[in-house]
Structure formats: C-alpha cells, structure tokens
Design a binder for these strands. Structure first.
Lengths: 355, 355
DNA sequence: CTGTTAGCGCATTCAG
DNA sequence: CTGAATGCGCTAACAG
C-alpha cells in the first residue's frame, strides 16, 4: 500500500455535477442532517429560527429531494404502474388519463406499459413494475384465465385494481356495464321492430366480451324472443374482424336487419364493409356501435352508440388504489371493491324502424 | 429502560412480508453477498458451480431485484419521464406508444404525465420527474418561450428530447414537417384552381402553429400569388375554435373556396360547422385536414388529409434519449439532433376543382 | 475466483 | 428541541 494515497482518489473524479444532498444543506445551515430532514418533512418540533435557516440553505444550495433515496428508506416509491393491452385504444387512453390525473393530485407518478394484448408481456411487465416497487397497480390483463397472472396477483401485496376485467379471485375492479349497454341496444332495436339482430364482438375470455354476449342473450330472453345464433360472432374486437364479419353477415341468405358492433374499434371496419358492399345505413341495415367516438357522431348517418364515462373509470380506479395504500397499515381483510359504471344509449340516425 | 428488551422489538412486528434480499440468497447459497451480486450482474468471473448454486438459491428464495436499491447505488433509475400537453390527443398517444415500445425494449420504464397545456404544470411535472431522478425526458412544452422552462432545461444534465417543439436553445427534438405538409396542401388546392384558401390553426408559440403558417405563406410566395389575410385564423387548434371559425369564414361576403384545418382535433368541429350551415363539401367548400383519423377516412365525403408517421416519431425520440444516455460518459458536446419526419398528402373527395 | 466493506441519500430512532 | 448514529438493498472497490 502506498501510504501517500488515501483509499479514494477523489481528484480522479472531476467534482463536476456533484449532487447536492441534505448533508450539504445541513452544513450550509450549520445544523445536523436530522434537523434538515425534520424541516423537510414538516416535523413540528423545530424552532422557527432554525427552520428558517434551513429553508434558506435549501434555496441557497438548490437542493432537491432525491425521491429514490426516500423510497429506499420508506419502502414507498409513490409510483403506480399501469399495464394495458393497448395504450392507443381511445378507451384505455381515456381511462389512463383519468387515472393519471388523480394520481398526480396525490403526488404519485404514473408508469404506463403496453402489453399489446400479449399475455406473456402482461406477466413480464407486471414483474418489471413489481421489481420497481410500484406502490400499486392498475391492470387490464389480456387473458383473465392465465394461471400465472392469477397466482402472481394472489401472492403480491401490491394493491391492484383491474380495469374492465374480472378475475376468478378476490380483486378490486372498475368496469363498465356492458351487459346493460347491449341490453339497451337490443331493447331499442326490438322496440323498433327488429328481430334479426346480429352481435359482433369478441374475446369471451375477457369481461367485456362476456358481458356483451350476456346482455344480448338476456335482452332476448326477457323479451320472450329467440335470437338466431348464426348472427352472433364472438371472435374478436378488431376493426378488421368487424370489416369481415359485417360483410359475411350481409351476404347471408337472410341477413340481419340490425347489427351491434360490440367493440369501440369496430365501427370503422363496419362502415368500410357497408361502403364496400353498398349496404345503406339504415335503409338496408341498422347499426349500433359500442363506444362513443367522433366518427360515430359525424358519420353519415350519425351512428347510434352505447357510451359511458371512461375518464371517471380511470379516476375511480386510481382512487381505489390510493385508498388501499392509505389503509394498508390497518385492515387488510376489507372486501374487494367492484365498481360498475353505467352505460347509456345515444340514439342517432343509424337505426330505422323495420318496415 | 428494561434490560430485558433489546433495542428493537422484532417480535412486535409480525415477520410477515419480510422482503427477501440478496443477503437471504447469499445465506441460502452459502456464499457472500458480493458473489450473489456478481451472478446477478453476469460478471464473468464466477465459478460455474457457484453460479448454479446462487441461481438455485434465487429461485428457491423467490428473490427479485429491488430496482430502487439498484438505482440508489448506480444513480440510474432506468426510467424516462414524458410530459405531454394532452395525453388523450391521438397525436401524442401514438407518439407515446412508439416511445414506450422502444424504452421497454431497453429495459426502461415510461412515466407519463399530462400538463393539460398548462405551462405551470409543465414546470411542476418536470421538477417532479427530475426529483424522481428519471434518466431522460421526452417533453412537449405548452409554451416554447417560458423562460423558466428554458433555464431549467439548460441547467439540467438529464437528456431531453422535445416532441413537436423547438426551443430557442440547443436541444434535441423530433418533429413533423408541418411546413411542408401545409405547403403540399396549398399547392394541391392551387393546382385545382383554388385561390381563396383559408387556414385555421393556432398557437404561434409552439412549433406546429408556426410551421403551418410558414408553409402557407411559402406556398403562396412560391406560386407568385397572394393570399387574403382575412382568411387566416391563428388562435387555437381546438375543435371548438374550428367550429366557430369555419362558420365565420363561410359567412364572409367572399367566403373561402377551400379551408385547411391545421390541427388534428379540428376536423370534427369543422364538419359540425358545415353541417350546421348547410355547407356542402366539396361543392361549397373544399376541406383539407391535418392529421389522419378514422373520421377523415370515413366521413362523407372522405376528407383529404396531411399525414405522417406518429409512432415513428415516438420511437425516434426514445432512441435518441437512449443514445444520449449511453453516450453520457464520453462526449458531451455532440451537437443536438433534429429529426424532422416527412409528411404526405392523402387525396380524398373533400376537395373539388374550382369551377 | 470469492469475501469483506463502504457507502448511495435519506428517515428515524435514541441520547442529550 | 437538536445531533449522532443506524440501516434500507444493493454495487463496486479492494483484499485475499
């Protein structure tokens, strides 16, 4: 060992960009580290004079709290992770926006991740967020029956709120009442004389698909009528699926007189299909779309839709996570919150009474 | 003091949910902490046998790295912050999606915040993200001339890439070529005989507004023609502004024969205005919209638009941040990257030759 | 090749 | 009311 050298060689590292820590503030204010901490955390037991000195020193040094270090100490990152199947779907966009809004109000950061409807990615992203020690999770799994997701969610102590999903386990969720939405749509179509009503929606492994089909079945049941199973298409909520199935439906020997598009991305596909096949709306077929959009409002003719408050869903979901985090120390066994937001039908000119 | 008690009272805290640390793994594998770290960080100098033992112990204990602690040590959070004026605007949504995609590929988390076009919030959010020690920023300031933002950006050592913005300082950015987009639109309209062309766009304090107006002016200049300043409206890019100004334009003694809507949210407003005033498109007025949407494609008639690749912008922006972070140790003085993505015009039936 | 050690920046006892 | 000391979980020297 060279006695002329200290352990470190501080002169090797240029002193540039040395981060300012509370220790610097303490030195500047001629107090101890603990006192600075107390001032920062608004602990009441600090002499006003000292408090002022510290505050001045903070301004003087330009110190900013290091949230990473705080997280390390407090085991709270004040971050909420959010995993969605499609972060460009206006539906989830609105939910995310609502959620981000309330999280920010609470001083929480919003970490957004896109699973692209890939169950593997769901798992991967969840783990990534958990490793980052997010304090809570907003999550819309791509597959409600993936056992790995289920067991992960069951084991984790991180409060989680599902978005438009419902799992076979006890977990908070916020979802829209799609069952009722479709029922409203069918009721309306029945009321204006339609009987051959088609439903195009998808993915029975996630809640919206199931609820939509359920609503469809219920509406007919309650009306004491039977629907034609050949008019029900339950494989996807993509625009391309809508495009294809609307064409196929209209090519049937006995085509439907009305079609419900059960998915907010489907209307463009449906309209394209009608345009291609020279199907007039509502003369040849009545259309109801699920999910309000500019397109629905401004298409020719304007399209009747089922709508609900998306941002409210996001805000609600975020509020629940905040609540769970706040309640963490006390009760753990409170039962899960299940929020169902109502839907309404917006009547426009895309539906005509059956002649 | 009760000598029977140790300092801590571990039996008071139930041992539930004790977090598993590398120390636990080390104990399980009968190696030291450092060795576990080496295995985790894929340091080559570890005997295969020991490596296996550690890996087994990791699985055994169910250990997950604590990214917070890693960040604390390495001063890197592997998070990128993103502040946008409107996280529900499809334009920014697509950019954010593209960005998130490449960030995830690099193992970075994406923290999204919405300023709601509020300059104060911009500042606040930037500080929040910086306190969280994000490694980089994607940012679309609401006001390019806010001196506080400028000085903050100038002082910070956090790599920042602007989205659709250009500041009076040296900073990377990714933007679309709106100037060219509008020029293409005007050129096209001129080529089919229009002379009274209106431009409705906004916010000259941000790049898109300025570039659009610039393109408009340039197109006329290059054609050796003059435009009527009364047909230029530069106050906002809102749908409601479009709604109002289209009406006002069409009420002029000499209304425009063509209108360019310079803002991707404006088309709905414009269409509503035309519907209200019984203005037929393109018989009474030709319309060009900036920004591709379902509505533009499926409106009656379909609307001619200027479009560009939004997700590519996001990917590009994220790539630049990644690059900057990687290059951090070496050069610091490399000049700023300015990426301009090209636009193209999509001709549809909303424009008719002037009779 | 492996073990030991020293902090990263902060919140929080515990003494004074 | 304030200061000193401790450790959150991890990485990166350094010593063996």
């Amino acid at each position: 060992m060279k006695p002329t050298q200290k352990k470190r060689t501080p002169e090797a590292k240029p002193r540039i960009a040395q981060t300012i820590t509370m220790r610097d503030v303490a030195r500047e204010a001629r107090v101890s580290l603990g006192t600075v901490s107390r001032v920062v955390n608004k602990h009441p037991a600090v002499k006003p004079e000292i408090r002022q000195r510290v505050e001045a020193a903070i301004v003087q040094t330009g110190w900013q709290p290091n949230v990473v270090a705080q997280s390390m100490r407090t085991a709270s990152t004040r971050m909420i992770g959010c995993v969605l199947p499609d972060t460009s779907n206006p539906l989830f966009v609105a939910v995310a926006k609502g959620a981000e809004e309330v999280l920010r109000e609470h001083g929480y950061a919003f970490v957004l991740a896109n699973s692209n409807s890939d169950g593997e990615r769901d798992l991967e992203l969840l783990n990534l967020l958990l490793q980052r020690r997010v304090d809570g999770l907003l999550f819309a799994p791509s597959d409600e029956y993936d056992p790995r997701i289920l067991s992960l969610l069951e084991r984790t102590r991180t409060p989680t709120v599902l978005i438009e999903r419902e799992l076979p386990l006890d977990c908070d969720y916020v979802a829209s009442n799609q069952c009722n939405g479709i029922r409203q749509a069918v009721d309306y179509l029945l009321s204006i004389g339609h009987r051959r009503i088609a439903l195009v929606t998808g993915q029975q492994r996630i809640r919206p698909g199931r609820e939509r089909y359920k609503g469809f079945v219920q509406a007919f049941e309650r009306a004491g009528l039977r629907f034609d199973p050949a008019l029900v298409r339950l494989d996807s909520m993509d625009a391309s699926y809508a495009y294809r199935e609307v064409q196929r439906l209209m090519e049937l020997h006995e085509p439907p007189t009305a079609i419900i598009m059960g998915g907010n991305l489907m209307l463009p596909g449906a309209l394209r299909a009608c345009a291609l096949k020279d199907v007039r709306i509502p003369a040849d077929v009545s259309i109801v779309a699920v999910g309000e959009t500019d397109l629905a409002e401004l298409a020719s003719p304007p399209i009747t839709t089922v709508r609900w408050n998306l941002e409210a869903m996001g805000r609600e979901a975020a509020s629940i996570v905040m609540e769970r985090i706040a309640a963490k120390p006390s009760a753990d066994k409170r039962e899960s919150r299940r929020i169902i937001v109502p839907t309404e039908i917006v009547l426009r000119r895309s539906c005509a009474p059956l002649k």
